[in-house]
Each structure stands twice: as C-alpha cells, then as structure tokens.
Design a protein around this nucleic acid. Structure first.
Lengths: 218, 218
DNA sequence: ATAATAAGTTAGATTAGACTAACAAATTTA
DNA sequence: TAAATTTGTTAGTCTAATCTAACTTATTAT
C-alpha cells in the first residue's frame, strides 16, 4: 500500500506527463509545492517500489505499475467529483478540494457503488475522462477555444483549469459544458474573442480564458 | 488543526469515557492498538493543546474543547454511516470501515450536505446518537436485552458492537432495529434467551449476543 | 504489610516526509 | 566556448508518530 504522500506524487506525475510521459523534478516540485530535494528523495523511494523509472539528472517516467496506480487515484478523484455534483448537488466549482481528500479512501466497494449509482460515467463534471478500472484513460480530440477562428460554431466540452475562481467566472457568464457558441470575432492584437450563446449575444472572453476551454467543432 | 493520529486519540477517548469521563492510558492503548509509551507521549501533546487534562499516573479526561472536537469527529463518522446506508445502499455491516476513513475529511460543506440530504437524522444505522453541531450527544435510556426477563416484550433499538461479524450474525437471524420481540424463556445457568419475533417463533440467542443488544420496553 | 503484578513513565531508536545549505550537472546566453 | 543560470543532488536537520527496554508507581493478593 502507498502512503498518502506517495499517492500524491504518483497522481501529480500522471497529471503532468500528458504528452511525452516525461516529467522534470522541477515541474513536479512546483506542482506539489514541495522542495526539489524532497522530490528527489521520494523519487528514489518510488523507484525502489518500481513505480517510477529514476536516473540522476534524467526526466522522470512512471512505470506501467506506477501509471496504473496513479490512474486508480485519478479515477477515484473524478468519480467522486461526479458523485458530488450529480448525487449530492454540489456545484462544479466546489468539488475539487473534497475529491482531493476522498481520492485517498481505501475501499473498492465505496467507489464501485458510486460508479454504479452514477451509471458508469466516462467523464467527470469538468469534461475530463474517468480512467477505467484498468487505468485506461482516453481524451477525446478537443481543440482549445483560443485556437478557433471567427465564424466557427463550437460546443464547449471540457475545462483545463478546475480552480474554483475560474469555474465561478464561467458560472457568472452562464458558461457550462455542452453549451454551443458562435465566435463572432477575434481581436488580432490580444486574441480576445467575442462570442454569442444562449441569450448572450455578445460576450467578450480573454485569451487566458479561451486557452482554458476545450471545444468540439460542430 | 489536529492530525489524523490526534483525531483518532480524541475519538477513542470520547468513545471510551461513557460513564465517568475518565479513561486509563492502558485502556486507550488497547483500544487503539498503540503501545502505552506512545499513548503517554501523545497525551502530553494533547495536554499542551488543551484537549486533554493529563497528570502523571492519573486517569485521562478530555477538556471541554477536547470533548467538542472529539464529538465533531464522531458526528462525521455517524453521519457518514447513515449516508452510506440510506443514500448509497450499503448494509449496516459494511459501513464502519469506510466511515472510519471519511470521518477525517475536512469539509464542513460536505457533512452539512449529507446531513441535509438525510433530513438531519438523530441516530446512526446502529442506533447510536449523532452528536449535534455543538457536540451534544444524548443516549436514550435503553436496557440491555440480557437484563430483561421472560415474558417481556421489547423493541430492538441499538447495537453495542458494530463489528461486521456481529452484524452479519444479526442479518442471518433477520434481527434489525425497530423489531419487536417477545422473550419466551431464559435459561438460568447460561442466560441464553429464547425469543420470538416476526415469523421466527423460537430463536435462541446467547448471553454474549443479548448483552450487545439495546432495547426499549414496549 | 509486604511481595507480586499491573499500569505508567522515561530514555533512546526508528521511519516517513518535510526542510535548508552547499555543491554538481546541464542548459542557456553572451 | 566560456560564463551565467537553471536544474538536480547530497548531506544534514527537524518533527510526528511509532517502537523497545528499563525503570517507577500504583494496585492486588497473600
């Protein structure tokens, strides 16, 4: 069994290693807000447990075992978020911190029950895929809203940043997943977008916001 | 904020100090399965935090602050058990170990939501009172089944032992809270009871079992 | 009342997980 | 390519929470 600290390192490693499967000590240190020497020593421990491939001065890579255990934690996190929203009536901006704690609960039955009560969901409330029991997790092919062009009509499918502040901002603009929107124009010098959706015919979204919204072309 | 270990000591202290409000180091040590020297040193720490009255070689007593914090943990435990049974479909024999973990979640909103969804319950699935938000917890005046006499008709109101084994035994005899039963006879030499209830007209219950069942006279 | 037993404490060791200070390697910049 | 910067490691310290061994105090039994 892994400790709480170990679980947090594993999860952060998988979350950071989206593309190449490689993570730097420095990145991990920043993400976890834990100093680099501590990270180095933990990597040696996880390496001894065959969860991480570790060589001095080389990037970090999860082993297959490590990936599976990390995915299991992320699965618990996302199932929990879904449960909190769908079954307990929380808003999507309220669930991250609670799920961050519940993901460490050791009880397969508990999460199996959540899964069943939710009808075996594939996505969490922020549009992120819930890894299956084997640790398999596939992201649909989304684009960032910031990469779309004026005239495009798109569907809001996921958010990258799940901080309460960002999600409260989205709430305040009635932006929620599944929403269709049309890009009316893009300011060339700061990439600000003017979009229309629902009853809002002209909302302005900063580039910072548009970079954090994942969309599907419609 | 108290650590997980500290919370477990506080909870055990309150659970053990039913009558006199006093607990021995030895009892606490056995309950927590932690050696006495470790308990002693933790008591010094909790004493420094004004949670426990501690003097060498004297029994341990929770301070008012300690009682309140301990009750808050027990409240979270029992609300969780109720939620698991009522809202998630677990059996009363399955919920203890899960609640043991969830009781440490730091999120007033999470437990407030449970409370609300459950309709502000006063008792947990085993008949134990759920402390209110101020830490107040009152046990109704129950008798042990083992103290009743032949001819009595009583209602099963709570169980003392909440181990899965004991609860599974009760399940196997269709014994559940709220059930009315009649004491047909008591064996004088081993205090075994023969009772009838529902469709079961003659069930034999050992003294060990009868001591763990709390009942109300009807 | 004293000896035996049980309960409690002190002292010192251990492990996990964090830190800082100092140094070393790798990368970037001039 | 050499200097400056960034990244990573080593060495050593600290605290929480556990342990064992040895000792002390309190309780029980003869």
């Amino acid at each position: 069994m892994n400790s709480l600290a170990e679980e947090n390192y594993l999860k952060a490693l998988l979350n950071l290693s989206n593309d190449k499967g490689e993570v730097n000590v420095n990145e991990l240190s920043k993400r976890l807000e834990i100093k680099m020497p501590t990270v180095t020593s933990m990597m040696k421990r996880l390496s001894a447990k065959k969860l991480v491939h570790y060589e001095s001065y080389k990037p970090l890579r999860l082993t297959e075992k490590g990936k599976k255990e990390a995915a299991a934690i992320i699965r618990k996190h996302r199932l929990t978020e879904m449960f909190l929203v769908e079954k307990m009536g929380f808003g999507w901006e309220q669930v991250h911190d609670i799920a961050e704690q519940i993901e460490h609960i050791q009880s397969p039955e508990f999460f199996a029950k959540m899964d069943e009560l939710l009808g075996f969901p594939k996505l969490d409330p922020h549009g992120s895929p819930i890894p299956d029991k084997n640790g398999k997790m596939v992201w649909k092919e989304y684009s960032k809203l910031s990469e779309c062009k004026a005239g495009d009509t798109i569907k809001l499918s996921a958010v990258i940043n799940t901080s309460a502040e960002f999600l409260k901002f989205l709430n305040s603009r009635e932006l929620s997943l599944g929403l269709k929107l049309k890009i009316k124009s893009v300011e060339p010098f700061d990439n600000t977008m003017v979009v229309s959706y629902g009853k809002r015919l002209s909302e302005t979204l900063s580039h910072t916001v548009c970079e954090r919204l994942l969309v599907e072309k419609v």
